[in-house]
Computed example of a mutant assay.
Amino acid sequence: MTVPEGNTRAREGQVCLLKRSVYGLKQASREWNTELYLKLVEYGFTQSCHDHCLFVKSHAGGFLTLLVYVDDVLIIGSHDSDIEHLKAYLDRVFTIKDLCFDKYFLGVEIARSEQGTYLNQRKYILDILKDVGLQEFDTERYHRLIGRLLYLNFTHSDITFAVQQLSQYVGNPHYSHWDVAVHVLRYLKRCPSLGLFYSSSSPCTLTAYSDADWGTCPDTRKSLTGFCIFLGTSLISWKTKKQNTVSLSSVESEYRAHGAVVGELQWIFYVTRDLQRTKHLDIDCHIVCNLFKDGFFVLQHVRSRNQLADVFTKSLGGPQFQMLLSKFGLRDFHRCQT
Score class of each variant (00 low, 15 high):
residue 5 E to D: 12
residue 9 R to F: 04
residue 10 A to N: 06
residue 17 L to F: 11
residue 19 K to H: 15
residue 22 V to R: 06
residue 23 Y to D: 00
residue 27 Q to I: 11
residue 35 E to N: 08
residue 36 L to E: 07
residue 43 Y to R: 13
residue 47 Q to C: 15
residue 54 L to P: 01
residue 61 G to Q: 11
residue 63 F to V: 10
residue 68 V to R: 02
residue 73 V to F: 03
residue 73 V to R: 02
residue 79 H to V: 00
residue 83 I to G: 02
residue 86 L to P: 07
residue 98 D to F: 07
residue 100 C to S: 14
residue 102 D to W: 10
residue 102 D to Q: 14
residue 104 Y to G: 09
residue 105 F to Q: 05
residue 110 I to S: 00
residue 117 T to P: 05
residue 123 K to T: 13
residue 125 I to C: 03
residue 128 I to W: 04
residue 128 I to Y: 03
residue 129 L to M: 04
residue 143 H to C: 02
residue 154 F to R: 08
residue 156 H to R: 15
residue 160 T to E: 15
residue 161 F to P: 09
residue 169 Y to Q: 13
residue 171 G to T: 01
residue 172 N to W: 04
residue 174 H to S: 15
residue 176 S to I: 12
residue 190 R to N: 10
residue 197 F to T: 02
residue 205 T to K: 01
residue 209 Y to P: 03
residue 212 A to Q: 08
residue 216 T to K: 12
residue 228 C to M: 05
residue 229 I to H: 00
residue 231 L to V: 07
residue 233 T to N: 12
residue 235 L to V: 06
residue 239 K to D: 08
residue 240 T to A: 14
residue 246 V to A: 01
residue 251 V to K: 06
residue 255 Y to W: 09
residue 265 L to Q: 03
residue 271 V to L: 15
residue 273 R to M: 10
residue 276 Q to A: 13
residue 287 I to N: 04
residue 287 I to K: 03
residue 288 V to S: 04
residue 300 Q to V: 08
residue 305 R to E: 15
residue 306 N to Q: 10
residue 307 Q to S: 03
residue 311 V to I: 15
residue 320 Q to A: 10
residue 321 F to N: 08
residue 336 C to L: 09
